[in-house]
């Protein structure tokens, strides 16, 4: 009797919660409705303010024709190659910077100067040096990933408490084990954050590079849409860019939560 009563209350609470969660949708739906109404009113030309339904149709067209997926595939391939290069380089260099006095003395000043230069500002320079082909885009992504990862790795390793190293000394851990069992796990949370920051920046810079100079990729699709005044194509592209960025960031966040369950703080 009591248990059924509490079950009823429980389900009522959860229904209430679900209803409350739905309120998060109010403003996006309102925005969509306003957009549709204003577009339908005909005050603005359909070329500038295209109805949401048309954007949806364009999205389906682009999806079915394979154009959208092809563009995304080109962009993601560039992102992946640059990310792998930049992340592994950043990881190695950051570790060397933190662990070797020599590397620090010779390389740290230049590293800290170079990381001040925004990736965006390098686009014209990279175009002149490497041309407008793949190299320029992949290297731009590499640069955008390398610096945050190297910085996070070096600071993460430097922040490892001395007591961890003392334990390693006490049990005379071999060098490989010191790196594998102590240094990298201890520095892994800041390193993963660095990877996440690097990925976000790389995605932004890559889209920018594709807008400026590319014959393929999502950025190029958007730029073509702009030149042909196809605002629906531009919007589909912009939304896709946002979605991909969101998915990339969320999956790394999920990975963070998964990997670092040992970090769970006692409340």
């Amino acid at each position: 009797m009591i248990s059924t009563a509490s079950a009823v209350i429980g389900s009522r609470v959860s229904v209430g919660h679900r209803m409350l969660a739905l309120t998060w949708l109010i403003s996006p739906l309102l925005l969509l409705a306003t957009w549709a109404l204003v577009a339908a009113s005909g005050h603005y030309s359909a070329q500038l303010l295209i109805p949401p339904a048309d954007v949806w149709h364009t999205f389906k067209d682009l999806l079915h024709s394979g154009e959208l997926l092809e563009g995304a595939a080109f962009s993601l391939r560039r992102l992946a190659s640059g990310f792998v290069l930049g992340a592994s380089g950043g990881l190695l260099f950051g570790a060397a910077l933190a662990l070797s006095k020599t590397v620090e003395v010779y390389c740290a000043p230049m590293f800290h100067v170079l990381r001040q230069v925004p990736s965006i500002a390098l686009i014209p320079m990279f175009i002149l040096v490497f041309g407008v082909e793949e190299t320029f885009k992949v290297l731009l992504v590499t640069k955008a990933v390398f610096f945050p990862v190297a910085l996070a790795t070096s600071e993460g390793i430097k922040a490892i408490p001395r007591s961890h190293f003392e334990v390693a000394r006490l049990y005379r851990l071999p060098r490989y084990s010191l790196l594998l069992d102590v240094v990298f796990p201890a520095a892994a949370p800041p390193i993963l954050t660095g990877l996440r920051v690097g990925l976000t920046r790389a995605w932004m810079v890559l889209v920018a590079a594709e807008l400026l100079a590319a014959d393929s990729g999502l950025g190029q699709m958007i730029e073509m849409g702009r030149q042909m005044m196809r605002i629906d194509v531009v919007m589909v592209g912009v939304i896709t860019i946002g979605l991909i960025g969101f998915v990339l960031d969320s999956s790394l966040r999920l990975l963070e939560r998964r990997l670092f369950r040992w970090k769970a703080i006692k409340e």
Binding site: R169, L170, R172, D181, P185, W262
Partner: peptide
């Protein structure tokens, strides 16, 4: 340092990313 001399500190100094068994096993690396 030497494995002939063990030490226990006031703080446990276990590695937070390793389980109890893994933490104990780390002493046997050599």
């Amino acid at each position: 340092t030497s494995l002939e001399r063990g030490i226990v500190f006031q703080d446990h100094r276990l590695f937070p990313w390793k389980t109890v068994a893994q933490n104990i096993a780390i002493a046997l690396k050599r």
